[in-house]
Computed example of a mutant assay.
Amino acid sequence: MATTKWSIDPTHSEIGFKVKHMMFTNVSGKFGTYDATITTEGNDFENAAIEFSADIASVDTANADRDGHLRSADFFDAESNPKLTFKASSFKKIDDGDYEIVGDLTIKGVSKEVKFPVEFSGIMTDPWGNTKVGLSIEGKINRKDWGLNWNSALETGGVLVGEEVRLNIELQFAKQA
């Protein structure tokens, strides 16, 4: 069977995250510049090869000072580590529409295996005749696992920035000719 390449449609995708601030509210952010590809056998997504990268310089939390701090050596160290990457080692169907993705997430030069549930929307054709597929990924990581350790203690106890990062990723891919 022929392999099929799928490229990300950045107009209809979003790479989002949330982190607790002062232990009681969430600060949301996203990456504005990223790339992802999927390679499948025909239109079968089981065992698809999936790769993703995001430009650290494109991190956006709607606050320029905070974004600059995130790009600094305190967090992502964008100068030395300009991209975060993910390469799937497994993409398997759990049941209709539900998949599980496993792979290596590399941030700041540190690679760790992660596992996330994936909602697979199925394959559809848009009004212009393009074959599309959608994936929704939600999961959690601990930022300290990748050396993103900066924090500040609060006078009232606790810390300024939570360790848990919640991911909210919406991906739309277009089948390549």
Results as ranks from 00 to 15, higher is better:
41 E>P: 09
32 G>P: 02
85 T>E: 01
78 A>C: 04
49 A>C: 10
136 S>L: 04
125 T>K: 06
106 T>Y: 12
83 K>M: 10
143 R>P: 13
106 T>C: 06
105 L>H: 14
66 R>D: 07
148 L>G: 12
116 F>I: 08
132 K>Q: 10
22 M>D: 10
19 V>S: 12
104 D>K: 12
57 A>E: 03
13 S>G: 03
55 D>G: 02
84 L>P: 03
143 R>V: 06
30 K>Q: 14
106 T>W: 04
26 N>F: 15
82 P>K: 02
105 L>T: 09
148 L>K: 06
47 N>S: 14
86 F>R: 02
149 N>R: 10
81 N>G: 06
80 S>Y: 05
102 V>W: 14
60 D>F: 01
58 S>W: 04
26 N>H: 12
82 P>M: 00
121 S>T: 15
152 S>L: 06
39 T>G: 12
45 F>S: 08
58 S>F: 00
86 F>A: 06
15 I>K: 13
91 F>A: 10
133 V>G: 03
74 D>Q: 10
139 G>D: 02
27 V>T: 01
138 E>C: 08
19 V>T: 15
19 V>Y: 11
59 V>D: 03
55 D>W: 02
69 H>Y: 11
21 H>V: 00
126 D>N: 14
43 N>G: 11
91 F>K: 07
60 D>Y: 03
142 N>A: 15
42 G>Q: 00
68 G>T: 09
107 I>K: 08
115 K>M: 08
29 G>W: 02
58 S>C: 00
108 K>C: 04
89 S>L: 10
129 G>A: 04
112 K>C: 03
152 S>E: 15
83 K>Y: 09
36 A>L: 03
129 G>I: 00
33 T>I: 13
140 K>P: 13
43 N>E: 05
71 R>Q: 14
45 F>M: 06
50 I>D: 05
38 I>K: 02
144 K>L: 06
107 I>R: 01
64 A>L: 08
68 G>Q: 12
49 A>H: 13
69 H>G: 11
64 A>C: 10
93 K>Y: 04
65 D>R: 05
49 A>W: 09
81 N>C: 09
43 N>H: 13
92 K>Q: 15
11 T>I: 15
30 K>F: 14
112 K>H: 13
97 G>N: 00
15 I>G: 09
122 G>W: 01
142 N>H: 12
24 F>G: 11
121 S>C: 04
28 S>R: 10
71 R>L: 08
52 F>Y: 01
65 D>A: 12
